[in-house]
C-alpha cells in the first residue's frame, strides 16, 4: 500500500510527458488553484473553530455528545466522533475544522482519528449539495432525494466503521 501512491505519481508524470504536457507549469497552475479555495474557506473555518472552541471549553460539547451517544452506539460509532456525524451533512469546511479539532484532541493515528478521517472522506455535505443543485434548477418538491441520500450516507458510515475496525485492529 505504501508503494501505491508513489508509483501512481511516477506513472502520471511519465504519461503526461508522453502526452507532451508541460508537467512543471501544469503543477504550478494546479497548486495556484488551491489558493483561492483556501482563501474562500478561511473565514468559514474561523467561524466554526470559534464556536467549536467555545462549545468545548463551556462543557456543552460533552453534554451534547453524551445525549447522542446511545444512538451512535448502535452504529458502533465512538461518542467522540458524534459531532462530526452531525455536522458533516451540512458543511464541508465546518467538518474539516472539526476533524482538525478531533486530531488535536485524540491524535491522528489513533482509532478515533482513523475512523473520523474515513467518515469525512467517504461522505458528502449532502444537505448543502441538495440545496445547491435543486436551488439552481428551481426545484421545490425533492421527492425521495433527501431520504435516499441520507440512507446511503448512513450505509457508507456503517461500512466505514466495519472497514476501519478491521484494518486498524488486524
Amino acid at each position: 500500500m505504501s508503494y501505491f501512491l508513489p508509483i501512481l505519481i511516477a506513472l502520471l508524470i511519465i504519461y503526461a510527458l508522453i502526452k507532451k504536457v508541460n508537467v512543471y507549469s501544469a503543477f504550478v497552475r494546479g497548486a495556484g488553484n488551491a489558493l483561492p479555495v483556501l482563501k474562500e474557506i478561511t473565514p468559514l473555518i474561523c467561524a466554526i473553530m470559534i464556536s467549536l472552541s467555545l462549545l468545548r471549553s463551556s462543557g456543552a460539547l460533552e453534554i451534547i455528545t453524551n445525549i447522542l451517544s446511545p444512538l451512535l452506539n448502535t452504529l458502533g460509532i465512538d461518542k467522540e466522533i458524534a459531532p462530526l456525524f452531525i455536522l458533516r451533512p451540512f458543511s464541508g469546511s465546518a467538518s474539516l475544522a472539526l476533524l482538525s479539532d478531533i486530531f488535536s484532541h485524540y491524535g491522528v493515528d489513533t482509532f478515533i482519528g482513523f475512523l473520523s478521517s474515513i467518515m469525512m472522506g467517504s461522505t458528502e455535505t449532502i444537505f448543502y449539495t441538495i440545496a445547491l443543485y435543486f436551488g439552481a434548477a428551481g426545484i421545490k418538491k425533492t421527492r425521495y432525494a433527501v431520504p435516499v441520500a441520507l440512507i446511503s450516507s448512513i450505509v457508507g458510515v456503517y461500512v466505514a466503521v466495519i472497514v476501519a475496525k478491521y484494518l486498524f485492529y488486524k
Binding site: 500500500m1 505504501s2 501505491f4 501512491l5 482513523f114 478521517s117 474515513i118 472522506g121 467517504s122 461522505t123 435516499v148 441520500a149 440512507i151 446511503s152 450516507s153 450505509v155 457508507g156 458510515v157 461500512v159 466505514a160 472497514v163 476501519a164 484494518l167
Partner: peptide
C-alpha cells in the same frame, strides 16, 4: 496520511451502490 485511501474507497462504493 494516505492509509485512508482504501477504506474511503470501499465505504464510498457501498453508499454509491446503495443510492
Amino acid at each position: 496520511p494516505q492509509s485512508i485511501i482504501l477504506p474511503v474507497f470501499v465505504s464510498s462504493i457501498a453508499s454509491f451502490l446503495c443510492a
